[in-house]
Design a binder for these strands. Structure first.
Ligand SMILES: [Mn+2]
Ligand SMILES: [Mn+2]
Ligand SMILES: [Mn+2]
Ligand SMILES: [Mn+2]
Lengths: 234, 234
DNA sequence: GATAACATTTAATCATGGCTAAAACAAAGG
DNA sequence: CCTTTGTTTTAGCCATGATTAAATGTTATC
């Protein structure tokens, strides 16, 4: 009866809608200003295309938008974002854990699958995984009700020398880099400590589960760690 | 170098293209005349839409088509059909067997997923299932190379009375009917025998794994069976 | 062999989600 | 304040895949 446009429309959102909404959510959560050109950049479309779609989303009451202002999600928009993100991350974990796809490939696959799975399949996947709360990169999986556990951690680049940490999150999506990290054994939950820090934001010497490796500063900045003893073992 | 249009174009086919090609293949394999309106009917689009798409497919060298004539797949068209069908049926089986989705739901789910899974995921699914050759409805799964095992069997409606058969295939996609069959325990490989056949194509009295049920004639016509002892047990 | 009935194709439109180029606006510096 | 620079929006366009209505072709019947 009221003006719950987006709600009564029901399931009319396309993959394009969902990707824009998810992108807005993700940019927002990285504390980046959500402008149409940031969006365009993130989605590899022209700024004009982003403007166009954002207007449609505003018509659907999924985003708040005034020309030349930055964009935010409405409550229903955020619901959609969390739903899609839940699909995405559940799929990533499922593909990696159950179907043994390499962790650098699961993102691209989930990017397409996230838009076409039914609620029933989402539930089945979640159940098969034991209702997990983090994906293979350590990103939190929103619950069915839209709750997101905040994953803590500090950048490895800012960690103390000679202290044992646990890798909890990898803020990276690029396949090449993920493959590289995988080759070093740098997956969530691995033990890592800083042996030496070169000056001027130079490379770091790290101990990864016993092996010594050099790691570029910007890589280390994308690895979130927590002190080993602050975490529940296994 | 030659005129292998469809081949060099590579992966430019959309879900719409794939669904049309698959529909042509399926109609053909049911010995139905593949006209644009049969296609339109099968895909729930208008005849004009079918004509339109078929012309595009002809341009891509995927179908053979002359106005007012019936349609057939080219060699590359058939390759595409088998590829999509493989995706579809592997997915159906995976969703049913591994994720425990009810068999009446897997078709609709696979209908969407079939267009978005990568070769790597297709392979992973096939491997996880032990490279299976039939889906949950008894339909054959094309191999990676495009081979299709022909599933034998005669309609239960034409079977002999008082002989033990094995259900091998269910030629039905409708959710309601599948749910009904499932409730009767009528899945592939179940033992079934005809106790009594009513005249004038009337209902059949059948023994399903020990239980007696009446079955409408047209239902029975969609159930393919083989003599129990002609088949490898288990 | 003409014509009626039906099937099929063509023509004209529409919605979606892109694009480029041009116009409008915002922010900063002089 | 005014102008320059860069950002954002508008305008005009395109491809895709659908639609309906009109035109055309095919087939069967008399
Ligand atoms: Mn996506
Ligand atoms: Mn992830
Ligand atoms: Mn499909
Ligand atoms: Mn099937």
């Amino acid at each position: 009866m009221a003006k719950t446009k987006a709600l009564d429309k029901g399931k009319t959102l396309t993959a394009a809608h969902e990707d824009y909404i998810k992108a807005i959510y993700l940019l927002r959560s990285q504390d980046e200003e959500v402008t149409n050109s940031a969006l365009a950049n993130h989605l590899n479309v022209s700024p004009a295309s982003a403007t166009n779609m954002v207007k449609k989303l505003a018509d659907l009451n999924l985003v708040e938008y005034e020309p030349y202002q930055s964009i935010s999600l409405t409550v229903s928009g955020e619901r959609v974002a969390l739903e899609v993100l839940r699909h995405h991350r559940l799929l990533e974990l499922y593909l990696h854990q159950e179907l043994k796809l390499p962790w650098d490939q699961v993102h691209a696959e989930a990017e397409r699958l996230e838009h076409v799975i039914s609620e029933a399949l989402e539930d089945a996947i979640s159940l098969a995984l034991g209702n997990p709360l983090v994906d293979p990169h350590g990103d939190p999986i929103p619950t069915k009700k839209g709750m997101v556990e905040s994953v803590g951690g500090q950048p490895l680049s800012a960690a103390r020398v000679h202290r044992k940490y646990r890798l909890v999150r990898v803020l990276m999506q690029d396949e090449e880099r993920l493959r590289y990290l995988g080759a070093l054994g740098l997956y969530p939950n691995v033990a890592i400590s800083l042996l030496e820090r070169a000056p001027f934001d130079g490379p770091l010497l790290v101990d990864i589960d016993g092996e010594h490796h050099a790691l570029a500063y910007d890589m280390a900045a994308s690895l979130l760690v927590v002190a080993w003893d602050e975490t529940i073992e296994e």
